[in-house]
Amino acid sequence: MKTDTRLRIRQIVEDRGPQRPAELVKALGISAQALHRQLKLMVEQGTLIVQGKPPRTMYALAGVADFSRAFEWLDKKTLRENPKDTVCETRDVLTARLSPLKNLTKQGLSPEDLPLLISTVGEIGNNSFDHNLGQWRDVPGCWMEVQVTGNRLWVCLADRGQGIYGSLSKTNKGIKSDQTAIETAFEKFVSGRAPEKRGNGLKYVKNTILGDADRGIACISGSGVVQYGNWGSDCESVLKKKFVTVRGTVTLMVWRLG
């Protein structure tokens, strides 16, 4: 019965976002004392985290990132300008923003993982520019945002470009759908920029993610979706809460800290 209550609490927080105890009491129809017993246990187990201080305490799922700003930016029908703090409008800005990732070792990223993290972010971010120059829907650039939740490091990269199908299908006539395009991009050595010899960046990203049990990645472009790694489904569920289809491309990676 108590396990059932905890499952219901988890479901509510997952569906509705961070909740106040009063909201949970109302939703569950149990006493405040009973709820607090469950919440205490769930915090101890690492399922929930406490946000804020009384009387505005909220309970949120532990280890779940919130990229709602990125998703809103990506989902807007039209945009005239970018937020400067998170969007790299040029490749130079993206490159400059890779260097501060070094500080993540202070938050628990292992020094051995740092080169892999920086290079994978660089590969994904540079793809936005390689495949969308002159093809942006409106504003140019690549959203790049890092969040740390508990022992997890999340990196979201997105662009309002032509999408993977738009890029690959022009030179690879066998690619007929968003799903085929995104799978091809991550798994086969082809590029949308033939005859240039390209197409290994996302394979490198996939291999890097699969190189450790505590990593994951998910990517949506158009209606195509892929996810890799043991934590890939966590990334996919974060993305799928917002998107069924994406105009452009959005990628979410997660790495273990500590």
């Binding site: 890779l98 740092l114 080169p115 290079s119 660089g122 590969e123 390209r198 290994n200 960046g201 490198y204």
Partner: peptide, 13 residues
């Protein structure tokens, strides 16, 4: 600190 296959591929080629 970090190198990606895109950069290295261009140089090696």
């Amino acid at each position: 600190l970090a190198v990606g296959p895109s950069w290295l591929g261009e140089v090696l080629a």
